[in-house]
Structure formats: structure tokens, C-alpha cells
Computed example of a mutant assay.
Amino acid sequence: MSDYERPLSFGVSLEPSAIAWPLTRFLARRAEDVGLDYIAVQDHPYQPGHLEAWTLISHLSALTDRISFLTDVADLQLRPPVMFAKAAVSLGVLTQGRVQLGVGGGGIPDATASMGGPARRGQDMVAYAEESLGLLRTALAGGAVRLDSPYHSIGGYQAGPVPPKPVGVWLGAQKPKMLALAGRGADGWISPLNIYVPPQEVPSRQRIIDEAAVEAGRDPKDLRRVYNVTGAIGSLGAHRTGRGLVGDVRQWVDTFTEWTVELGFDTFVSWPAADPERQLALFTDEIVPSVRERVHAERSGR
């Protein structure tokens, strides 16, 4: 695997907790103040303690002026693609383009079904996701949207408005068929957390994406590659289990640099496992600028 040499960007995932939403709001403002690129919000509306992701993003977008928002990732089984596109372009207009969409085919079918959605699995889920992805991207770009299929019946919707900046659609995937779909039909790939897709498994997944992109006549370098990273910076007692990336600032900087120039990621979203305020400060003050410097030096020295 190699570096795709795309510009680096960094974000933080904020918990959509109904109990802890004042902290989430505070952290959103901090993320903007310190210059992060993205606030990411997970989409598990069937969790009774979670706020609905799009409602939370809309609320937080009104409290910020610069930082962009990312659904990480939205369940396409619960969000009809044309209506989801309408919501995204609407918020894109209202925020001057601070919206990106991470979407997934629906990784927990029974939970989706508990809210009235279809419990699609396997090839049925992949086929639905592919069709939904195409509709979503068409509707985001404006123009007429028409399709009559077993999954969708759309009779010529005139899409719009068109936001001031394009809304990217990045596909969350980890299995071969969905990875191939990311390569041929999405604007990028969002990897699940590093505890679910560990670094040693990334090259094989990147190859699937690249091969599908080339087969579809696309340049693999045009696709965004996002890694969701959980763990702990420093020695916090809450991280005794050692899950994810656990180490001091130097280890995080070394690791992120390696994951950029050797694994091909260009965007890192931090998912603090505990003490999010302190972890956010360490991430933004010490890790992000050092990784940018190291990656620039690596690229310049080739």
C-alpha cells in the first residue's frame, strides 16, 4: 500500500448522548476553536439513549461557523436517499457548505427492523446500498431523479437546491462487496474503528477499492480515505483494557504518519474512549500539527 498524497484532515466523533448533550455542545465549540476540520456523529437511532444524528448535527451547526459535519455513518435503510439528499443540501445551503455524508448499507439489520426499516442482509443489502448511493449522488448534484425498481419508485423529482460546496458521499464498508462499491460509486471510503479493521487488514481492503475504481474508469487517488480511531493518548486509568491505539503523543504521531504514508489514509477521526475534553486538547494541540509536519517532511523527501 502507498500514500495517495491527498491533503490531510482531522476530526473528532462526538457522542450523541441525550444525557451528555451539554458536553457534546461544549466539545463542538472547542473543536471549531482549535481548528479541526470535522465533527463526526454516529447514527444509531435505535439506541434509546441516543439523540437522532441529523437533528444533533443541525443543532451543532447553528452553534459553529467554520467546522464541517460528517455522518459517521448514516444508515441508508432508515434514510430514503432522495429525502436524505434534500436534508443534506438544505443544511449545506444554511451552513455555506459545511456538510459531508458518510453512509452505510445498514450494519445491524435487526436493529433497523426494530424501527420499521427492512432487515436486508447480504447481497440484498449491497444491491439496495448501490442503488441508494447512485440516487443520493444524483439528487445532491441537482437535476431530475427518476427510477423505477424493486427498491425505489421515484417519478422524476427535480432535485435542488444546489449547495455552495459539493456534498461528498463517503461509504462506510469493511467487506469485499461493499468495499468494491466504495471504489466504483462513492467519493471515498470510511473505515470502521481501528479495533474492527486493524491496520494490518487495511492494505487488502484498499486494494479492493482501488481495483474497483480502476475498473470503473476512476482514479483511486480521487477517493477520500477516512480512518475512525479509538484509543487513549497518555496513561489514563480508564484505558486499562488497552483497546485501540494507546500510547503517548510520540506514538500517536508516529502511528498516524505511518497510516498516512503506508496505509493511504488522509483523514483521521478521533473517537475518545474517555475524558473527551482532555483527549481533544492533546489531539488538537500536540498530535495534529506534528502529524501534518511529519507527513509533509516524508512527502517532500521522496
Rank of each mutant, 00 (worst) to 15 (best):
M1P: 03
D3A: 14
D3Y: 13
Y4S: 12
E5Q: 06
V12F: 04
I19W: 03
P22K: 08
R29M: 07
A31T: 02
E32C: 03
E32I: 03
D37L: 00
D43F: 03
D43H: 03
D43W: 02
H44Y: 09
H44D: 04
L51H: 11
A53Q: 14
A53F: 05
T55G: 08
L56I: 11
I57M: 12
I57Q: 07
H59R: 10
S61M: 01
R66M: 14
I67Y: 06
F69V: 04
F69Y: 06
L76K: 07
Q77A: 15
P80V: 04
A87L: 11
A87G: 02
Q96K: 10
G97E: 06
R98H: 03
V99Q: 05
P109G: 00
P109K: 00
D110L: 12
T112S: 12
M115P: 13
G122M: 03
Q123V: 13
M125N: 15
V126Q: 10
L133Y: 14
R146Y: 00
H152Y: 02
S153M: 10
I154Q: 01
I154V: 09
G155R: 00
G156I: 07
G156D: 08
G156H: 06
Y157K: 00
Q158S: 07
G160Y: 03
P161N: 04
P163W: 01
P164T: 08
P164F: 08
K165E: 01
K165T: 01
P166K: 10
G168V: 05
V169S: 00
A173T: 09
L179D: 15
A182Y: 02
G183A: 01
R184V: 04
G185E: 06
A186L: 01
G188R: 05
W189L: 11
L193K: 01
L193N: 01
N194T: 05
Y196F: 12
E201T: 13
V202G: 08
R207L: 14
I209L: 13
A216C: 10
D222Y: 03
L223S: 09
T230G: 14
T230H: 05
L236K: 06
L236V: 10
T241F: 08
R243L: 15
V249Q: 15
W252V: 12
V253I: 05
T257S: 15
T257Y: 07
V261Q: 11
G264H: 05
G264V: 12
G264M: 12
D266S: 05
T267H: 12
V269R: 03
E277K: 09
A281P: 09
T284E: 04
I287N: 12
R292G: 15
E293P: 01
R294Q: 09
H296Q: 15
